[in-house]
């Protein structure tokens, strides 16, 4: 059903259209790719990624080697290899050894792991930025490590980490375009499909660029608002 709908739209686009007409007619399919794939891919991967990041950050802050070592190895491996290669391993690599995962979930896995690694460094740094006196005050009123972490340190660290995490989020929006290479029909894949029919690469890719720019522009406005609001609550 979705496939038919998609090819119907492509049918309304042909190689002999004028530039402006092509621009207009491609707009909706691309926006659809954005709504159906780019945005869900970003949101789901970000939420999963943050959960991974929190676990990794806490593991790295431990003083036990069997926690810190795997966490460091994970961060190092993810940061040390290209996202495109990771995507390819999960989709094409695993597929070739009989472990086939659909394009969309493959993309979710790759992006979540990626956000997990990068955001874990941000979360770790924000936890470390909270003054030692906050841990000590928690201890003196009898809190355990996990109580202090949950009730005193993390709420403050969250405020510190929101600006850098918003940057991660905006990068993720753009990175999701890589999912086009494993056949997820997100925004950029739509542009590629249309361009393959019309050969108007310049027009269509600029159109895609503009759409990404608009999404990120809106996000950065939201980011500024949130930061201005949080500023008042960060104590030093």
């Amino acid at each position: 059903m979705a496939k038919m709908f998609q090819s119907n739209i492509l049918l309304t686009i042909s190689a002999d259209m004028g530039g402006w007409e092509l621009f207009q007619n491609s707009l909706w399919p691309m926006i659809q790719g954005g709504i159906k794939y780019t945005i869900p891919l970003t949101l789901i991967s970000f939420v999963l990624g943050l959960s991974i990041a929190l676990i990794i950050a806490i593991m790295r802050l431990s003083n036990r080697k069997y926690f810190t070592f795997p966490a460091r190895a994970f961060v190092s491996a993810i940061r040390g290899t290209p996202l495109l290669v990771q995507l390819s391993i999960i989709f094409y690599g695993l597929g070739s050894i009989g472990l086939t995962i659909d394009p969309f979930p493959s993309a979710i896995i790759a992006f979540s792991l990626n956000v997990g690694a990068y955001a874990s460094e941000i979360i770790r740094a924000s936890i470390l930025s909270i003054p030692k006196g906050q841990w000590e005050a928690s201890q003196t009123i009898g809190m355990s490590y996990s109580q202090a972490l949950r009730r005193i340190i993390l709420p403050q660290a969250t405020r510190v980490s929101i600006p850098p995490l918003s940057n991660t989020f905006i990068s993720l929006v753009k990175d999701t375009s890589l999912a086009s290479l494993i056949l997820v029909t997100e925004l950029f894949r739509k542009a590629q499909e249309i361009a393959a029919r019309t050969y108007d690469f310049m027009l269509l890719y600029i159109e895609a660029a503009i759409l990404y720019w608009i999404i990120c522009f809106v996000l950065s406005i939201i980011q500024d608002r949130v930061e201005a609001r949080l500023e008042r609550h960060i104590a030093r």
Partner: peptide
């Protein structure tokens, strides 16, 4: 023992009342 610090070390994200209730309530 209860400790009072030179630099107070109050919890900045909690009100005065919440700073005081945190120990007896949570711990």
């Amino acid at each position: 023992s209860g400790m009072v610090f030179q630099s107070y070390n109050l919890f900045p994200h909690k009100t005065a009342l919440e700073n005081v209730t945190e120990g007896p309530l949570i711990v």
